[in-house]
């Protein structure tokens, strides 16, 4: 059980393809970070990344004062006191890593996000792909299978493209068909992969147009580690991207920072919770009530769904 006097906070980004965990001490120093790949919205993945991070830090769950979750499976984690969306957490994490950031591009496994950040470091606008997976990590995974190249080798191989080819940037399924057609025409894998990464950049540019181009631009998420994706994005934007050393953990870091707020600035955190509490109480017994389960009589938690 977590204790409010414990010395650490945890942020968990329960993503669609990977789970990331970051642990901070009370001074905001990162003491551990872990990434686990366990398939789609995998509870095992989240558990593995949390266990690994705890092990790295040399602590146990009892040493965690607050935990905040984010990502696709954010509401599935019992350990989390609270959850925020990945938009809010990636922006928070990215601004922490690059304090003057004004635009955050996050390309994750399931979705792509472009987030505009104001001078106070708060999200002012965002755009996100809806149902279409084009331009996401899934898009790259599907095309890696089509060209039979390991995912991590795709970027470097695409950087050696010579011939300029073009594929659809509108639909992952159509793009896969086009890739197969290009290979059947005898085109080199390197050149086909160059076109694939150019398509991702083109798709992301569409999202950027919805919130407005501004700089500096920070890129987070797993695709930020792909050299060809970064190269093509820089080409279409006409500017350099800032890539944090470990771009995949930005969301988990943001979540951990929110957890840290809760123990270092409880006034601000409480202010937001009061809004949530009143609203949740007013809904009890109505169709929109989000109460999940009754609490044991001796438990008086401060945050999250346990309010009920």
């Amino acid at each position: 059980m977590k204790s409010s006097t414990a010395q650490y906070v945890m942020g968990i980004d329960f993503g669609s393809t990977t789970s990331k965990t970051v642990i901070l001490d009370r001074a905001g120093n990162m003491v551990a970070s872990a990434i686990a790949h366990k398939g789609s919205v995998s509870n095992d993945g989240a558990m593995v990344s949390m266990a690994e991070a705890l092990q790295q830090a040399g602590i146990t769950e009892a040493d965690i004062a607050r935990a905040v979750s984010t990502g696709y499976g954010r509401r599935m984690l019992d350990i989390a006191d609270k959850s925020y969306t990945e938009i809010t957490c990636h922006a928070r994490g990215a601004v922490h890593l690059v304090p003057d950031a004004r635009l955050v591009i996050d390309i994750g496994g399931q979705d792509s996000k472009v987030i505009a950040v104001d001078a106070n470091g708060l999200v002012s606008q965002f755009a996100m792909n809806d149902r279409c997976a084009a331009g996401t990590g899934k898009f790259l995974e599907a095309l890696a299978r089509a060209v039979q190249v390991p995912l991590e080798e795709m970027g470097p191989m695409a950087m050696t493209a010579v011939e300029h080819l073009s594929i659809s940037n509108m639909c992952a399924t159509f793009a896969e068909t086009e890739v197969v057609a290009l290979l059947a025409e005898g085109k080199r894998k390197h050149d086909v992969l160059g076109a694939v990464h150019a398509a991702i950049a083109s798709r992301t540019l569409g999202l950027i147009a919805r919130v407005g181009k501004r700089e500096p631009v920070v890129m987070t998420g797993g695709v930020a580690k792909n050299v060809a994706a970064v190269h093509h994005l820089e080409q279409v934007l006409g500017m350099k991207l800032r890539i944090p050393p470990d771009p995949q953990i930005a969301g988990a870091l943001g979540a951990a920072l929110f957890a840290l707020d809760e123990i270092t600035s409880p006034d601000h955190a409480d202010e937001e919770d009061r809004v949530d509490t009143e609203m949740a109480a007013a809904r009890c017994g109505t169709p929109t009530c989000t109460a999940k389960k009754p609490l044991p009589a001796n438990v008086h938690p401060l945050h999250g769904p346990a309010l009920h």
């Binding site: 938009i87 965002f126 996100m128 149902r131 601000h268 202010e271």
Partner: peptide, 23 residues
């Protein structure tokens, strides 16, 4: 039919409004 992606966008929007208003 799949509302999960939509949930993220709506939650994010409400978080933005709330945090901006509080700031």
């Amino acid at each position: 039919t799949a509302l999960e992606g939509l949930r993220t966008r709506i939650e994010s929007f409400l978080e933005v409004v709330k945090r901006q208003a509080n700031a």
